[in-house]
Design a protein around this nucleic acid. Structure first.
Length: 769
DNA sequence: CTTTACCCACTTTTT
DNA sequence: GTGGGTAAAG
């Protein structure tokens, strides 16, 4: 242990040794955050702390897995079982299964992923006879999720006049009813969605005093990774858990907060020292990852953001090559050029392919790169997008398995009752649901007793056969492990038969996917029992418990390990590569225009860019394209403002000549790094509070600095009432910016105390006459 | 009830 | 360029 401590710098060591009392570690990019966390846990254990008393929470399975492995390494043979290291969701799921009876759930409750959730919401929207066009599932889900994460129950929701008014305005007046019904249905199905795992943990702690006491005393030491990404609910839970011992250590970096879109509250970390007395605050500022030019650029960029904890990241690594900025004619050139560079670099500097990463803002951008990589025979692996477990055929098999374990789960039942087609159609399912509601019994019970209800003879037989199948599979659970059951499901249900008959390319791929699923289940059942001799449950139930919260297949094949990695910037957080390409740096794409509706959103995009470039150790390329296909149509984009924000000393610009078009087609723009061409960022960053002058209310907007009137802004004027897709109703109080970047100061009914600055060119405002 | 054909909306990020 | 959902035909 001593040697391990010697490897740390003074701040890191301090963070490890300060074990008692609240501790807040601001860990800059590449400052050895994981090292500190893992060493800290190892240190606690070496001091004789019982692993049973330690809780470490992360946001991703990958982070949890890495921490476990690194602790194991430090401890060598010492015993590290019983440590609670995992994601918020998986740790709480584990606790909730154990405590299920306290909150009225079965301990084998299902966990709904986003697809399951959306399916249920959709059927509820239909049941309530609401217009699917107005109640778009994704927006409904988002709003419900927001409510849950802010501890607003369906009752609170329905009784809150402000929320109701807002919903009516959004033409989703019945959203509260949808929310209420959704919660009821989930409960009836014995299912929890991702938010419920947090919410029910909160309920357990607040409603069952014994449980609160139990877990407060169990978890004497609490560590939370990526604390800047916690939402209100997670914040409340950790506060409850830590209340008894206050040995809570949070690690995070406000500059890397990129999840506010799903409710993360940066203030949780910014105000941590207000939550506890005697908070020890440590800032890790030495960066061990990137060379000077990259770190210099990163520091310069993040300075454009207003609110952040001041820090000065530095590195001992001497400056190497400058950052290269590649401006391409179009998106396929961008991809082609980058793949050429990868090949050249790997030859000349002996980089392995796995030392390259291509990072983009949106998943859709991966396709062009995929084509180019394939054409040039470079091995690659794309992360994200449609994950293995989201595929139809895989979900179908899993749905069978989940029904076997939890027959209450109507969503899974509806999913597979007619897969493969067995003559049970829409009308029959509706009829079953009606009976189920009338007799107040579950869908599954209707099937079991189908002979008592008048179904057509052929339908009745189909239902009987399906029922017999499920009953038979259920009898197998006691004696057979997860793999044997899954295999039987595929054979007996006819899924295999159906897939085998489909000889199309996609059909074969689907069959292979199911085979792969079976293999992975088999591998799982054959995992050795823990070294401690703890017998691991190989039942189907145990398998399903861990599978739902698993996002991507963690075990990479050897080929994949040697491949160029492609992923979104979000997915790259926490990773590092020798050579990084950040691509698609265009206005509208990165920063992305769909979310650029306020200055705060721009800051988040900038943090995202900061995360992107700090992934690079030695070499960094920034790339964009003057034109790009979107929906099969060519769009023309200006280069990203973020490129202009990097001081010239760190960058070298290269204009890539098109391979396909002549010069006149490409219009290279000369960039002057010193000067901000748009004059835009300066405005945005202004820290002066906005003054409202009542005398200006008749001013018509659209006047630029020279007093020229601009037609397209004619609709926006002071006191104009508007509706914003995200913030709702509001009134324009003032206008600024020039014709190219008009900004409105808007007071929203939802936020009576603040004035938001909205970029008119991005915001989709509706004018209220 | 099933299959096929067309149409449409979609592209921000994820546990 | 995709995949999912709906409508009409079988």
């Amino acid at each position: 242990m001593q040697e391990v401590l010697q490897e740390l710098n003074p701040q890191q060591r301090q963070a490890v040794l300060h074990t008692e009392g609240p501790l807040m570690i601001i860990a800059g990019a590449g400052s050895g955050k994981t090292k500190v966390l893992t060493t800290r846990i190892a240190y606690l254990l070496s001091k004789g702390v019982n692993p049973f008393n330690i809780l470490a929470l992360t946001f991703t399975n990958k982070a949890a897995k890495e921490m476990k492995e690194r602790i194991q390494k430090i401890l060598q043979n010492r015993n590290a079982v019983n440590l609670f290291i995992g994601t918020f969701h998986s740790v709480f799921a584990r606790i909730l299964r154990y405590e299920a009876q306290h909150i009225g759930y079965p301990s084998n409750f299902s966990v709904y992923d986003t697809d399951d959730t959306k399916g249920l919401l959709k059927s509820i929207i239909n049941q309530l006879n609401l217009d699917e066009k107005k109640y778009k599932v994704s927006s409904v889900l988002h709003r419900i999720s927001d409510a849950k994460n802010n501890l607003i129950s369906p009752k609170d929701y329905l009784e809150n006049p402000k929320i109701q008014q807002e919903d009516v305005f959004r033409k989703q007046g019945s959203l509260g009813k949808v929310y209420e019904k959704y919660c009821e249905e989930c409960f009836r199905n014995g299912a929890m969605d991702f938010d419920d795992l947090l919410l029910n943990m909160y309920r357990l702690l607040t409603q069952i005093p014994e449980s609160l006491h139990k877990y407060q005393h169990k978890f004497k030491y609490i560590l939370i990774d990526e604390y800047q990404d916690t939402n209100y609910l997670q914040y409340q839970i950790t506060k409850l858990l830590a209340a008894a011992h206050e040995n809570i250590c949070v690690v995070g970096d406000d500059a890397q907060s990129i999840y506010s879109f799903r409710g993360a509250v940066i203030a949780n970390i910014l105000k941590f020292d207000k939550d506890y007395d005697n908070v020890k605050k440590i800032i890790l500022e030495q960066n061990y990852r990137s060379q000077q030019n990259i770190l210099g650029a990163a520091n310069a960029i993040i300075k454009h953001n207003k609110s952040q904890i001041p820090k000065n990241l530095w590195t001992n690594i001497p400056a190497q090559e400058k950052i290269k900025y590649l401006q391409n004619t179009n998106d396929s050139d961008e991809a082609k050029k980058i793949v050429e560079i990868i090949k050249e670099q790997s030859l000349r500097h002996h980089y392995e392919f796995n030392q390259f990463a291509i990072l983009y803002r949106t998943n859709a951008q991966s396709r062009t790169f995929e084509e180019s990589l394939r054409r040039q025979n470079v091995p690659y692996k794309i992360y994200g997008g449609m994950s293995f477990y989201q595929r139809k055929e895989v979900k179908d098999v899993l749905a069978y398995l989940r029904i076997i374990v939890n027959p209450q789960d109507n969503e899974q039942l509806k999913r597979i009752i007619n897969v493969p087609a067995r003559g049970i159609g829409k009308t029959t399912i509706e009829k079953c649901l009606i009976i189920s509601a009338e007799k107040n019994i579950s869908f599954y019970e209707v099937l079991v007793n189908s002979q008592h209800y008048d179904f057509r003879q052929s339908t009745a037989t189909s239902l009987q056969n399906f029922c017999t199948l499920i009953q038979y599979l259920r009898t197998l659970t006691a004696k057979h492990n997860a793999y044997e059951l899954a295999d039987t499901v595929c054979k007996q249900s006819g899924l295999f038969k159906e897939l085998k008959e489909d000889r199309t390319v996609e059909g074969i791929a689907r069959y292979d996917n199911v085979q792969e699923l079976l293999n992975s289940i088999k591998e799982w059942t054959e995992l050795p029992d823990d070294e401690s001799g703890e017998l691991i449950d190989k039942s189907l139930g145990a398998y399903l418990q861990q599978i739902t919260l698993l996002t991507d297949a963690d075990n990479e094949s050897e080929v994949e390990q040697k491949s160029v990695k492609l992923m979104t910037v979000h997915a790259a957080k926490g990773l590092e590569f020798s050579c990084v390409f950040v691509v698609g740096l265009e206005e509208g794409l990165f920063p992305n225009s769909q979310i650029l509706q306020s200055a705060e959103d721009l800051e988040e995009e900038r943090r995202l860019f900061y995360v992107a470039i700090t992934r690079a150790k030695a070499k960094l390329w920034l790339a964009n394209a003057l034109s790009r296909y979107k929906f099969g149509q060519i769009t023309y984009n200006e280069s990203s403002r973020f490129i202009d924000e990097i001081p010239q000393e760190f960058v070298e610009k290269l204009i890539v000549k098109s391979h396909f078009f002549n010069e006149s087609f490409s219009k290279p723009v000369d960039y002057d790094f010193e000067q901000n061409k748009t004059g835009f960022s300066k405005n945005v960053m202004s820290e002066n509070p906005i003054e409202i002058s009542p005398s200006t209310h008749t001013k018509v907007v659209g006047l630029d600095s020279k007093g020229v009137y601009h037609q397209h802004l004619g609709n926006y004027k002071i006191e104009q009432k508007i509706n914003h897709p995200k913030f709702g109703l509001g009134t324009i109080i003032n206008l600024e910016g020039d014709a190219h970047n008009p900004i409105a100061h808007i007071k929203f009914n939802k936020f009576p105390t603040e004035i938001k600055r909205i970029f008119l060119q991005y915001a989709k405002l509706e004018i209220i006459p």
